[in-house]
Design a binder for these strands. Sequence first.
DNA 1: CCTACCGATCGGTAGG
DNA 2: CCTACCGATCGGTAGG
Lengths: 216, 216
Amino acid sequence: MPKHPADIDIRERIIEETIQLFATKGYDGTSLQLIADAIGIKKSSLLYHVSSKEELRDQVYKNLLSHWKNELPQLLSTASGEHDRFSSVINAFVSYFLENSNRSKVAIREMLDRPDEVRKAVKEHLGSWIKLITDYIVLGKKLGVVKPDIDPDSYIIQVIMMVIGTVALGSVISAMFDNKDSRNINPLIGELERIARHALLVNPTPKPQKTGGKSS
Amino acid sequence: MPKHPADIDIRERIIEETIQLFATKGYDGTSLQLIADAIGIKKSSLLYHVSSKEELRDQVYKNLLSHWKNELPQLLSTASGEHDRFSSVINAFVSYFLENSNRSKVAIREMLDRPDEVRKAVKEHLGSWIKLITDYIVLGKKLGVVKPDIDPDSYIIQVIMMVIGTVALGSVISAMFDNKDSRNINPLIGELERIARHALLVNPTPKPQKTGGKSS
DNA sequence: CCTACCGATCGGTAGG
DNA sequence: CCTACCGATCGGTAGG
């Protein structure tokens, strides 16, 4: 028997509110009562849909992981030109998390709360497509456009670290510089891209107007 | 009246066990009962020393912040040569967090749980000495040893992001590459240093054997 | 989706 | 540092 539209709707609402609350208050800091209140139903009604808090958590993370698995491989192929392939991959990656900062927050929280479970899930679901990037970097190394002393695997991890760190914690940590209006993480994103580019490419700042440059 | 040695001892034990538990389970996931059990006393006895869970948290973070304020300025002056000044600052910074991964874990957890409070504390206590690094980078820029397109503030934040991220989450996120034995974050540290160097310096890999190099 | 309820645990207090 | 206890809230169930 297919689900009623209302059933799908309420399940989506539950997941949505739960992600929001898990991101800001964490799993242990979020009671079922709090989630029920955010939706506007009674706690016992919430438990009719999810059966337990643990199952709710599982569904939240399954939802998030499926986003990764569906969107990320596709955005990785959104790469355009030769030099811009790098920029577009980074930008797409950043955009994905920037779109909703809850994604990186819950990811970090989960890594801290349940490292073993996340390790397993990450290995199982994300290992294969990230291999593609590694191979691409290794290829660039052989072609001489990528710096020879790079460690591709570690490089990718460090870039991921900067991305999720910036989106989740950037507005807090950038408060160290009181002169700027904090909360605006745009400068951080720009510098992150610059760092990633300079650490990867032999010629990080190409000058197209130089003689012999490919004009097309 | 001065504190008894036993008083100091028990307070240190309380802080120590609490940091450990806050790091692995978070504030909301750590009950006073759990802390008391770890120390080996009753919960009410714990409450004789700390009066409330909130006060316990404040003391834990005050303890951690004082470590920062005392050790970091001193390790920043541990810089040695001209080119190695960079490496030694980075290394000292990494070592500080690597020494006890709980430090970066609780830092990240606190940033997620109470962003406003951390923003205030960070601005108040860490803003001044981090200014020193910024100035140093700006100077290097004028001297032409630092890349001209760098954003010093954002650069420092991104390096911090990589450091605390690597120490706190590195063993989890590096599980994406199943070929390597995870948990060993040494390659991550090495690559982090390389990234930071290449993104900062005009000449990231000096060749001392070249003519005219300072041999001493 | 609700009312009514459960035992367990929460942070915290009284009193010694 | 302990025993004994408190009201409030936790995740979850019964029954409709």
